[in-house]
Design a binder for these strands. Structure first.
Lengths: 128, 128
DNA sequence: AATTATAATGCATTTGTTTGCAACTGCAAT
DNA sequence: ATTGCAGTTGCAAACAAATGCATTATAATT
């Protein structure tokens, strides 16, 4: 597999931050080291790395997708549509569900970062 | 709740088609009846109806989101990233999983159309 | 019927993301 | 070193979706 400098830097950036970063945030960090890099190059690099399973892409309902290192550990999120809070759930029970679905449908699931929207306990209490 | 003519037409269109439609497809049908309607009005109407739980929004990886009547029955999809085929799974086992997650996190899930990406049995055999 | 408050709409603009194409780069075989 | 090829990049343009603001429509209230 051919090495791309942009891919390398993205991996380093994500490894340093251990967080959900938008492509713009990633782009801006990369630009400090490679000022000439184009934004679509970053998009393509992220797409490539997502296909390889190195990073996860998630729409958390914030307007732009966020990226994260898969090596940081498989986890998933519950996003409250009222207050915007984000609960993290680990892969354990999600994994059981995935395995079930896979067995029943002869399908290998690649989705590695599940996002479920809804209402958190706090907002459920207050809002009705 | 206030009634919008666009909302009404969208409901009728989706009820007629019983399918996943893109906002552009919906827009074009609406334009036949209300030629002056703007595309952002359609986006806003769909967003409104999704918030009410009348329609589901899903990114099936086709470039644009698709909308569907929730009243048509809760179901979910497995999308093959190799051949693009779409398997439909009903709400039963997904519902059990949702209930589990809800109980463990005091969270009410609103997501009503789950999309999981991966590789179908056929492509798994051929591709390795 | 007139008034008011609220929600919906059109238009133009902006944002986020993808794509086509030509140029370039890294790697392997010669 | 040269060639060839596939993968990567920049640029501009296309596309999908969201937004700010002024206007209009709707339902409730008077």
């Amino acid at each position: 597999m051919r090495t791309s400098s942009v891919d390398q830097i993205i991996l380093e950036v994500l490894a340093q931050e251990h967080a959900h970063l938008t492509s713009l945030q990633i782009f801006e960090v990369i630009r400090e080291r490679l000022p000439a890099v184009n934004q679509s190059t970053v998009y393509r690099a992220l797409e490539r790395m997502a296909k390889r399973g190195q990073v996860s892409v998630s729409d958390m309902g914030t307007g732009s997708a966020v990226y994260e290192l898969v090596a940081d550990g498989r986890h998933h999120h519950l996003v409250c549509q009222v207050c915007g809070c984000i609960l993290t759930i680990d892969h354990e029970e999600v994994g059981r569900f995935f395995t079930e679905i896979e067995a029943q449908n002869q399908f290998k699931i690649a989705t590695n970062h599940l996002i479920l929207f809804g209402v958190c306990g706090e907002c459920g209490k207050n809002g009705g």
